[in-house]
C-alpha cells in the first residue's frame, strides 16, 4: 500500500488548523498517512492526529539542531524522513512556512513540487491548481516516484476517521547550515491572527470608540476560536491597526462565519467579506444596510449583545 506523508505544521504548540484538512485529503486517497512532526511534542498531538486518520507519527530529531530556527534543516529532515519511510507523496499546507519548507524538501529530494493546489489525485498522480483568478483550472501530472505538494488552506474539510496511531521517534542527520537562521519571530500584531486564514471572524466598526473596547471582541473571539477584524472607520480612528482592516482596500476574507458588530455595511467593507458563508450583523439601527446583506441580524447595542454572547459561550464551555 502506498504511503502519504504529511508535514504537521505547528505554531505556538498548536497544530495549524488547516493541516487537518490536508490529512483528511491524504486519508481519502486510500493510502496510509504518515505524519512528520518537528517540534517534539508528539504526545501532545497524537490523539488529535489519530482522530483524523494518521496511522504513524514520525517525530523527527536531529542532533544539535533546533528546527524552528532553520527552515533549511526542516526541509532536509522532511526529505530524509520521506525517503526513510518510503513515502510516495509528501503533502503540507501552502502557508508561508509550508511553502518555504516544502520547497526545500523537494529540492533535497530532487522531486517535483506543486504549491497552492486545490486538489490531489493519488492514483493518477495529478494535482489541480487555479489560474487566472479562478477562471481556469490546470491539472498537473507529477512524474517520478515521489512528489511534493502544498495544499491551499481550507481546500479540504477535516473529517473524522479515527485510527490507532503509532509514535516513531526518528533521528536524521542534516547539515547544520547557518545560511538562514531565524532569530526572532514577530507577529504582525501581538495576539491577533491572520484574517485571511480564519474560519470565524468577528469585526468591529466605528462605534467601538476605542482600542480598549476591542477587548470585548477579543474575549468573544477566544470562545469562538475567531480572529478579530475591523472596518476602515475603526482603523482610521486608530482603534485597530491596518492589518485588521477588512474590505476593498484591506483584507479580502472568506470565513465560514462573519460577525459584524457596529458596521453600517458600506460596499467597501462588504466587498472584502461578501463571500463569507454565514454573516451575522449586530447593529442598533434597524435600517442599517448591513441587515440586507446578512443571514442573521441582531438589532441591539453591541456593548450589550457581544458580552452576552461571550457569557453564553462560556456557559456552554
Amino acid at each position: 500500500m502506498s504511503k502519504t506523508g504529511v508535514f504537521i505544521e505547528t505554531t505556538d504548540q498548536e497544530i495549524k488548523q488547516s493541516v487537518f484538512g490536508v490529512i483528511s485529503a491524504a486519508a481519502a486517497g486510500g493510502g496510509e498517512v504518515t505524519g512528520f512532526l518537528l517540534d517534539g511534542r508528539a504526545d501532545k498531538y497524537k490523539d488529535q492526529l489519530a482522530a483524523c486518520g494518521v496511522t504513524e507519527l514520525v517525530a523527527l530529531e536531529a542532533k544539535d539542531i533546533d528546527f524552528s530556527k532553520s527552515p533549511q534543516a526542516t526541509g532536509e529532515a522532511l526529505a530524509k524522513g520521506a525517503t526513510d519511510f518510503g513515502i510516495s507523496a509528501l503533502l503540507g499546507v501552502s502557508s508561508p512556512t509550508g511553502n518555504d519548507v516544502l520547497a526545500r524538501a523537494a529540492m533535497a529530494l530532487k522531486a517535483p513540487l506543486a504549491l497552492d493546489c486545490m486538489d490531489v489525485d493519488f492514483t493518477a498522480n495529478t494535482v489541480k491548481k487555479s489560474h487566472f483568478s479562478g477562471k481556469a483550472v490546470a491539472t498537473l501530472e507529477m512524474t517520478g516516484a515521489l512528489f511534493v505538494c502544498g495544499i491551499r488552506p481550507n481546500s479540504f474539510e477535516a473529517v473524522e476517521s479515527p485510527v490507532t496511531i503509532k509514535i516513531t521517534p526518528h533521528t536524521v542527520e542534516v547539515e547544520n547550515s547557518d545560511a538562514i537562521i531565524v532569530t526572532e519571530v514577530q507577529a504582525a500584531d501581538s495576539s491577533r491572527k491572520d484574517l485571511t486564514e480564519a474560519t470565524v471572524i468577528i469585526s468591529g466598526g466605528r462605534p467601538m470608540a476605542s482600542s480598549d473596547n476591542f477587548k470585548i471582541l477579543d474575549e468573544c473571539a477566544r470562545k469562538l476560536d475567531a480572529v478579530v477584524g475591523a472596518s476602515r472607520a475603526a482603523v482610521d480612528a486608530g482603534y485597530a491597526p491596518h492589518s485588521m482592516q477588512v474590505g476593498q482596500t484591506g483584507k479580502i476574507v472568506s470565513p465560514k462565519l462573519y460577525i459584524g458588530c457596529g458596521l453600517s455595511g458600506s460596499v467597501q467593507h462588504f466587498a472584502g467579506m461578501k463571500t463569507s458563508k454565514v454573516i451575522v450583523a449586530i447593529n442598533t439601527d434597524k435600517d442599517a444596510p448591513i441587515f440586507t446583506k446578512s443571514d442573521y441580524g441582531i438589532i441591539g447595542d453591541l456593548f450589550e449583545v457581544v458580552p452576552a454572547l461571550t457569557k453564553e459561550l462560556e456557559k456552554q464551555g
Partner: peptide, 19 residues
Amino acid sequence: VEMQDTFTNLENQGNPWGF
C-alpha cells in the same frame, strides 16, 4: 496591490467589487 482584485473583479463581473 489593491488594484489586483479590482482588476479581476472588473474583468470577471464588470464591477470593481466583484458582485
